[in-house]
Nucleic acid binder design. Structure first.
Lengths: 337, 337
DNA sequence: TTTCGAAACCAAATCGTTTTCAAATTGGAA
DNA sequence: TTCCAATTTGAAAACGATTTGGTTTCGAAA
């Protein structure tokens, strides 16, 4: 059923029908009611591609997905979906071949030129991320999930990674711990830097010297959590507490502790960052895991909302949200022995 | 840069340029070379929306995402991405509001009518899934990840869930276990049914009676794994082995065993299904987890490939792939005490 | 020299909407 | 009754590509 045909059946012009359905004011309410009603009855729906061609709007937000297959990703997208359902806006997943830097820039460039999306959501930016400069230069609306200190206006939403780790570390020191290890994410991304800062700042505030033997970084996997924790705990002067970067990392840390006959919460304290997953909760671990918590799903929802605002004309330079992170204390933390 | 403009710069007609770029034969090779070369130099790229309107092809595959935020999803999509990168085909995520059945059908209907995707990939179908009948009726190309016994031709790719669970159960019986529990996925989906069949068939083959006290089902979460395993193991006549539906479930099962002072692999054997995640591996669990294994990422890659074949004209009724599932024995299984 | 077919190119119609600009209708005030 | 402004409606021109159905060009065969 095409517009022309549909309009004819109603005895109206395509113009009027189009206006009625798009909510323009120059059409009487009685006509609008009739049109919308008949559209449902006769099953008329505007051809998306025609609309897109005409309006220049695509009706899709692109989300760049790294190749690592991170478990956060599905949660973030589920959150986006919550916001976007009913908004007539699609989520387009842009697979990012993990190529060299030059190729990656090319990919972004081509994505913009192909006009397949109205806006882009980018994850885990780097401190001086040229991709941000590129997107800005190309005039593509975009939102950064995370932050970059690059000197280019850009909309972003980030959680307070620095504060989260700082508080986690401080709390461990409150409990009497002085040797505290940290497992960070892969170096390069700003969030890893922030977490590192949080860790160092906390130590410094108490006059505890930074020990490079007590930090490690890598992908957020169970395996690395285990390996790093093992290597920490087997040191001559082992840490009594570990700050872990993710729930998966925490699993590995727990396993490492058990494997060495150490009891988490007593022999070694653990705090991890929890993105809140429906399938794995800090509360249910044994012992329950003290965690810095921030919902990835909520972030997805809000990011989608902010992108819609961006597309509605709100200035990117006034969209900056820094979310506080909760510190939830459970059984995995205890006084230093 | 528009086609008209670009063609003028080349001193050619839009027709010829379009043909040259689309690889039609009615254009001389020397012209084609010049056109493609200049297109790169001058940065001409056809407007996607115009192409889509004209050709009726969208260049996107829709993937229906449940609201549960399943951790499998990101892996599956990462797999799809591997296949689709460079194919000029996008992945569109279709959020599925978990509504009642009627609304869900409406959602599929509207998705098809909106013509936003060329094909659809659907997950976890039910035994007599009307959505399949609907998509077939509406003439939308689609592929089912999983299976349905509905009497309508449809392309599908599935893993041998029945065989996987049957072999897992049989192996446990080989080890002398006679009371074996199983934690299944949410009832309704075909895969849950198949797993149940596998379980029952294995028992029956050895003449062991099915005990409804030893089966449970629900979402694949750590929490349910724990709860179900606890309730099994606290029974008066507890099972000596447990077949778990997912890695997350297995985490819960391990935890339950530990909480009761039982040692996995000695006091209670565990086999789980492993979709192969980069961030959580069965091999690294302690004790290492015996598992039925099939790569979710590989499934995504293959599904994307099959959908492309479908779009290229291959008949849906000849696309049926049943993937065998490996059984990998590790330390979590041992002889019955 | 003429004729013919293949090879290479092109003008214009088309895809299904939105939107500009103009016309028709309506209802009240003069 | 007449006129005017406000309210509704329409005709037709975009949007930027693809594709149908030609036309031209050119070399070889007759």
């Amino acid at each position: 059923m095409k517009l022309k045909e549909f309009a004819k059946q109603l005895g109206l012009s395509p113009t009027t029908v189009s206006r009625a359905l798009s909510g323009y004011p120059e059409v009487s309410e009685v006509t609008r009611a009739r049109v919308t009603e008949e559209a449902v009855r006769l099953g008329y729906r505007p051809n998306v591609n025609a609309v897109r061609l005409k309006t220049g709007r695509v009706g899709a937000i692109g989300v760049v997905m790294g190749r690592a297959g991170e478990f956060h990703f599905a949660e973030f997208m589920a959150g986006m979906a919550e916001q976007l359902v009913g908004e007539d806006t699609d989520i387009l997943v842009i697979p990012l071949a993990d190529a060299n830097y030059e190729e990656e820039m090319q990919l972004y460039r081509r994505l913009v030129e192909s006009r397949r999306v109205d806006a882009i959501i980018m994850h885990s930016p780097r401190p001086n991320d040229e991709r941000i400069a590129l997107l800005h230069k190309l005039g593509m609306p975009f939102l950064v999930h995370g932050r970059s200190d690059i000197d280019v206006p850009h909309a972003w939403l980030d959680i307070d990674n620095e504060g989260a780790v700082r508080r986690a570390t401080s709390h461990l020191m409150d409990l009497g711990h002085t040797r505290i290890a940290m497992i960070n994410g892969r170096p390069g991304a700003t969030y890893a830097l922030h977490r590192d800062n949080g860790y160092r700042n906390a130590l410094q505030a108490r006059g505890i010297e930074f020990d490079p033997q007590l930090v490690a970084s890598g992908n957020f996997t169970d395996e690395l959590g285990f390996r790093f924790a093992r290597s920490f705990l087997e040191q001559p002067n082992p840490p009594t507490a570990i700050v872990a970067g993710s729930m998966m990392t925490a699993l590995g840390v727990y396993r490492a502790a058990r494997s060495l006959g150490l009891q988490v919460g007593r022999d070694v304290s653990v705090i991890a960052h929890d993105d809140v997953f429906p399938y794995l909760s800090a509360d249910n671990m044994a012992p329950s895991l003290s965690a810095t918590r921030s919902s990835m799903r909520a972030a997805g929802t809000r990011c989608a909302d902010l992108v819609l605002q961006l597309l509605a004309g709100r200035s990117a330079s006034e969209i900056h949200e820094l979310w506080p992170v909760e510190l939830i204390l459970r059984e995995s933390t205890g006084p230093a022995q």
